[in-house]
């Protein structure tokens, strides 16, 4: 079997570069809006500016779990019928899981940095904090499962766990809501936000969404490249090629 090169075409590289430049420009505007343009909030003062980064990233964290679920279902559906499409779905699933983990980490850490000066405590088990903590734990366990299981099984087992996690998220959300309610309500939709604050929120939302989309695509391509290496190694192994017994340092035999 011919393994085609995984280097993207010149056009794709150009597009990615332009996309990165545009993202950086939007992020710069967002930073200026958040720090210099938006007025200080009446009761919280300057600390409120954390929200301009916290809200976009924490809201974006709720999107990639769906991508992860779609990828996992796609993998389970195609794995016996169309191996190439199944591998693509799996690459999408792991990329989305890692983005989820990163965005929830950002949401938790920036939320804690906001809570310390405003509430006087780093952490409290209120509704949304607990939900995000559990979301974070679910995707940590998903990624750990992929690392701990051996090559052939990892994809299927991880896909099964991903479906469990996706079903678990709404149940967790409701149960925590019944348990605790202290978090300031949804900031954007409640109408409490002054209109002078909105540009800072939306510029940053757009910027980080564009950047997350870029990292998601890049991580997907990396996983595809790792899958190609795994296939090439397996084939070299079958043909008794000595090169397979000396993999380069730092490169796992297969992507996890």
């Amino acid at each position: 079997m011919q393994t085609s090169s995984s280097t993207p075409s010149k056009n794709t590289q150009l597009f990615a570069g332009l996309w990165l430049l545009a993202t950086l420009a939007v992020l710069a505007v967002g930073y200026r809006q958040a720090i210099f343009v938006a007025p200080a909030e009446a009761t919280m003062g300057d600390v409120f500016r954390i929200f301009f980064y916290h809200v976009p990233n924490a809201s974006l964290a709720l999107v990639p779990p769906y991508i992860n679920l779609l990828g996992s279902i796609g993998y389970l559906y195609w794995r016996g019928k169309n191996p190439d499409r199944a591998a693509k779905s799996d690459a999408l699933a792991i990329a989305a899981a890692e983005i989820t983990l990163m965005l929830t980490t950002i949401g938790l850490v920036t939320g804690m940095l906001w809570a310390r000066p405003i509430w006087g405590i780093w952490w409290t088990f209120d509704e949304r904090l607990t939900t995000y903590l559990l979301l974070w734990l679910l995707y940590v366990s998903y990624i750990l499962l992929r690392r701990l299981s051996s090559s052939g099984q990892a994809y299927t087992l991880a896909a099964v766990v991903s479906i469990f996690a996706a079903v678990d998220v709404p149940i967790t959300f409701m149960s925590i809501r019944w348990w605790r309610t202290q978090h300031p309500g949804p900031v954007l939709t409640s109408g409490k936000v002054d209109h002078s604050m909105l540009p800072a929120v939306f510029w940053n939302l757009a910027g980080w969404a564009m950047f997350s989309l870029l990292t998601l695509s890049f991580r997907y391509l990396l996983e595809r490249r790792r899958q190609r290496i795994a296939v090439a190694q397996a084939e070299a192994f079958l043909t008794d090629d000595p090169a397979v017994f000396a993999p380069a340092a730092g490169v796992p035999l297969r992507g996890y």
Binding site: L134, L137, L138, V140, S141, L144, L145, V161, F164, A165, D168, I171, T172, M174, S175, I176
Partner: peptide, 9 residues
């Protein structure tokens, strides 16, 4: 590692 987060609710 897998059971506890999913059993949380």
């Amino acid at each position: 590692l897998v059971l506890l987060p999913i059993s949380a609710p």
